[in-house]
Nucleic acid binder design. Structure first.
Lengths: 180, 180
DNA sequence: GATGCCATGTAAAGAGTTACATGATTCA
DNA sequence: TGAATCATGTAACTCTTTACATGGCATC
């Protein structure tokens, strides 16, 4: 069960709300971890019960009040001891590739369409990473150092997105375009 | 719920036992779908109840008897109609990258060690894909055609594994080696 | 007027993991 | 003698998704 440790790691870098974490899951670390908002809120509640995180409730004008979470010393200990353990193997579910796998049952036009669609999504992700990268590169040295390893994980994400784009192009060259 | 469709797609290419499917999940399509043997057997039972797959029980000398599953016409219809629907987004869980993300709490030696270990695993996966690729490339034309799209998904897997290896090297160059 | 963003959650159902259970053969 | 491969499954538990629920502000 390492979603708890994923949250601890994210909050260890920067404190934040559940909503905040959710967007980080969707954007910056989307290529290696996914989680829904429901799950994030639930895990935060359970982490708080265990004493690994704590929060301040902040009221806001014109917006619902929010809970800003941070890691407690006990939470940091837990994270550190988790870091000493061997990692669990990766788990992935990529429905799009099941589609390609069984793509003989689709028309060439449909296959092409799906690949184009998927490629556009990866392009978007890569663009988002590139924006984040620019933000990181323009930080003052001290801040930049803090994000060094998170940035490293994003560099892998960028390489993977690039692999997807290359693959998509090769696939589209490979599948003849049908004419009426 | 697309593990059912993943199984249908795999059985549609080649019939096989639960054990068989499990090894395919671990080897050829491991980089985009993972499943445990328990889950595979459970799903096969439920697919059989729904009438989407059927099997012959084959007794073997000196080995437990096995059930060879294949897709039924109803199962193929289900697969085809699933293919028409938009795919669900990918889901990934990569505990190793959480470790890197929070890697400031590890020594440089430990970080390097983890990266080396992880890189070795990706090297192994890439080698397994390369072997499979050789097998595919030496098939007679007719058979080769059948595996065209499954092979395409593996090509993406190879690109992704290569991205991991490149990244690992860059990381190791980036993290100074400590001396006693 | 509709969509999207910010911000939080609960309840029920479905998916997936961990532990348990068995057993012969082959290879090092 | 021990580990790996082939081969199947059940039971309990945990994790994750889907559907439901609310509501103001900003942008198009």
């Amino acid at each position: 069960m390492s979603i708890k440790h994923a949250i601890l790691a994210l909050l260890d870098i920067d404190q934040g709300t559940g909503y905040d974490l959710m967007t980080r899951f969707n954007n910056s670390i989307g290529s290696f971890w996914s989680a829904s908002h429901q799950q994030v809120y639930k895990e935060l509640a359970s982490l708080a019960t265990e004493g690994w995180v704590e929060f301040d409730e902040v009221e806001q004008a014109g917006k619902p009040s929010k809970k800003i979470y941070r890691v407690t010393p006990a939470g940091l200990d837990e994270l550190k001891s988790w870091l000493q353990k061997p990692v669990k193997p990766l788990k992935v579910k990529y429905p799009f590739l099941i589609k390609i796998f069984a793509g003989d049952h689709l028309s060439k036009a449909q296959l092409r369409q799906d690949i184009i669609q998927n490629s556009a999504e990866h392009r978007e992700t890569l663009d988002a990473y590139t924006k984040l990268e620019q933000w990181i590169l323009h930080l003052p040295e001290k801040e930049k150092k803090k994000y060094h390893l998170p940035y490293a994980t994003m560099k892998l994400g960028m390489k993977v997105e690039q692999a997807w784009l290359e693959w998509s192009e090769e696939m589209l060259n490979d599948i003849p375009q049908e004419r009426e």
